[in-house]
Design a protein around this nucleic acid. Structure first.
Lengths: 135, 135
DNA sequence: CTACGAATTCAAGAGCACTTGAGGTCAAGC
DNA sequence: GCTTGACCTCAAGTGCTCTTGAATTCGTAG
C-alpha cells in the first residue's frame, strides 16, 4: 500500500504539518510507521482528515471525534448522535438564513439609522446568540 | 430615561454580568453612569447586545464590531461589508446544508462501514474545512 | 563522506471569548 | 449605625485549536 510522508499529506489535505502532528497527538489520525524519524501515513489518512473537517463543521470538538473513532480503528459513529447533530445543524442553518437575510436587508435599507428600520428591529429580536461551543 | 443596573441587563439579555463588564471593557457597550460603584445602563443597551449577538452569528469578531460602532455612538455599519458578510454566510449555509444532509444519510445508511458508502464518500469530498475564524 | 534541508520533539505562545477568584466598597434594609 | 449582599476592580485562568521556536536527527544529493 502506498504511503505518504507528512509533506505530501500536508499538501494534499491543505493542512500544515504541525496540524497533522497535533492531530496525531490527539489521537485523531495515526501514522503507520516511520522511515527513520519521519512519519509515514496511509493514503486513507486523507479520508480521515476529510471526516474530521466534516465533523468540525458539524460542531464536534476534536476530542469528541477522537472518542468516536477511538480505540479501535474504523469510525464507530453513534447514529443517534448523528441525528441529534443534524437537528442541531438545522437550527444553526435556520439561524444563519435569518441573519443573512437580515444583513442583506440592512445593507439595502434606507432608514436613517438601522435601529429605526422595523425589519432590522424584527431581526434583532430573533438574533439569539449563536450556540456556544459545547460548554 | 429609564436606567437598568447590571443585574437587570443580565437578566433581560441572558448574559452574565461578567460578560457585560467584559463587553464594556472592549468598547462594545457603554454604561451611562454610576450609582455609587454600580454601572447604570440605558435600556438601549439591550438592542446593542442583540446587535452584538447578531454580529457574532454572522461571523464578526468582537473587535470588529467594536470598530464598527466605534468612537461615535450609533452603529456606522459599512454596507459593502455587510453584503460581503452576507455572501460569506451564504457559503457557510450551503456548507452546513451539505453536512446536515450528509449526517442524516450516514445515520440511515446501511453500508457496512461509512467509508464504503458512496454517498458518504461524495460528502467527504465536499467537506471543506469550515472557514477559519478570520485569521 | 559531507553538507543540506526537511522532519522530529518538546515547550511555550497565540487568539478568541469569556470566567473565576481575591479582596474591597457601598446602598439599602433592619 | 451596622450588617448584608450585590457590585466593583484587577489579575489570572480556562477551553479549544493550533502555531512557533529552538535544538536535534536523519535521508539524499553530490
Amino acid at each position: 500500500m502506498k504511503t505518504l510522508d507528512i509533506a505530501e499529506v500536508a499538501q494534499r489535505s491543505g493542512l500544515p504539518a504541525s496540524t497533522l502532528r497535533f492531530y496525531e497527538e490527539k489521537g485523531l489520525i495515526r501514522s503507520t510507521g516511520r522511515h527513520g524519524l519521519r512519519r509515514l501515513f496511509a493514503e486513507s489518512v486523507l479520508e480521515r482528515l476529510a471526516l474530521i473537517a466534516l465533523g468540525q463543521g458539524a460542531g464536534f470538538t476534536l476530542e469528541e471525534m477522537a472518542e468516536m473513532f477511538g480505540a479501535d480503528g474504523r469510525p464507530a459513529i453513534d447514529r443517534a448522535r448523528l441525528l441529534e447533530q443534524a437537528d442541531d445543524l438545522d437550527k444553526r442553518i435556520r439561524h444563519l438564513v435569518r441573519m443573512r437575510d437580515g444583513l442583506r436587508h440592512v445593507a439595502a435599507c434606507t432608514a436613517p439609522s438601522h435601529l429605526e428600520c422595523p425589519t432590522f428591529r424584527r431581526l434583532l429580536r430573533h438574533a439569539a446568540r449563536p450556540p456556544r461551543r459545547r460548554p
